[in-house]
Nucleic acid binder design. Structure first.
Lengths: 197, 197
DNA sequence: AACTAATTTCAGTCTTGACTGAAACAACCG
DNA sequence: CGGTTGTTTCAGTCAAGACTGAAATTAGTT
């Protein structure tokens, strides 16, 4: 299976970005390939298309499973495992956020809590203690915020994203440079949201 | 300079996480050290505290500068460069988001636009074309959303985060499991925000 | 200018982890 | 059960990049 030029470009770029996103090149390339192809592929097709070792594909598929990014689909009359990924970018986004949160955020929150609980915390500077507390508070807030957001329906989430910084009017009277129109219009909105807290 | 137990734990953990966040261990450790210490340190103090090579510190400081995470502060009567990082976690968060966006998001948006502009795009499956378009649309939406959010005042941003999924009531009638109270209360809010778009 | 202090650069070493091919394993079939 | 097909494991190789020490460079001082 030979990729068309655009698909090839997409797969190669996704692979490169993967290395900065914390997964290795092959893993990201396989995911990109499944995404752009849009139908279940077996390991040999992937091996051939990406020109890497069969065993490398096997390990990378396992890694993608750990990320909940692929599922194996049985095909009538074919014993080989076939894999597919979602073609819904929003679901993809949700999965990535969920997984990264649990790998990159939650462990740190754990450690920070430990730090504050530990008997040794008292011997630190007051200012240092405060910074650890603030760091924890920020990470906890972001973490539960992310958990809430990924539960939303894609269409709802898109609307929230599009709304962007305009929500600030609901929590704060003073508009910033980012979105400074309609401050008066949303004044009653601000009231009701405050009431909802 | 010997670190107290909690500070040491913090620095070591931050260093480990750094590797999953896309910066190397020493870079993340230095940043954590400056953050927890809360006063400008010179390269030799850092070298000694973290027990790494002086030249490694030099390179890592340069890397932190590229990330806009540290600044050098002149100290009266001392020729050596001293470095500090912000002790405001929100400013820190903003900087990291800004930098990661420009490293990990913007280049991909560029490539996706290229893909769609290219003459070769027509030869791809209609479905594949659509997926690339949707991917681009999602990334553009997230990108400009992030740009708007990091322009907010920390206190405003915190309120927006705390508001969390409740904002969905402003854009969508049907509440989800995440935050399903006060749907009626925010009904007039929803109207006014829609009007503001 | 010569000397000293501080920093940066760089060639080489070392570590980590990605990748490979071969062998082991598992599932299915006749 | 032996043979066939497909998958996983694993020891060894390789590549990328983190780290070091020594040398070069820059800046400040007398």
């Amino acid at each position: 299976m030979e990729l068309k030029p655009v698909a090839k470009k997409f797969v190669l770029h996704w692979g490169e970005m993967g290395t900065t996103w914390g997964v290795n090149r092959t893993v990201a390339q396989i995911h990109a390939l499944l995404f752009i192809t849009g139908r279940p592929l077996n390991a040999d097709e992937i091996t051939e298309t990406l020109d890497v070792a069969r065993s490398n594909v096997s390990m990378s598929l396992k890694e993608l499973s750990n990320w909940n990014l692929i599922r194996s689909v049985p095909l009538m009359g074919d014993r080989r495992d076939h894999y597919e990924t979602t073609t819904d970018v929003w679901e993809l986004f949700r999965t990535v956020v969920r997984e990264r949160k649990s790998r990159e955020f939650d462990p740190t929150i754990e450690v920070l809590r430990d730090c504050l609980k530990s008997g040794d915390i008292a011997s630190e500077d007051k200012a240092a203690q405060l910074r650890i507390k603030e760091t924890l508070a920020l990470m906890e807030a972001l973490s539960s915020w992310a958990s809430e957001m990924i539960r939303l329906e894609p269409s709802t989430m898109m609307k929230v994203i599009k709304l962007g910084a305009k929500v600030q009017h609901l929590v704060h009277g003073k508009p910033s440079a980012a979105a400074n129109s309609s401050a008066t219009k949303s004044e009653n909105a601000r009231q009701s949201v405050k009431a909802a807290e």
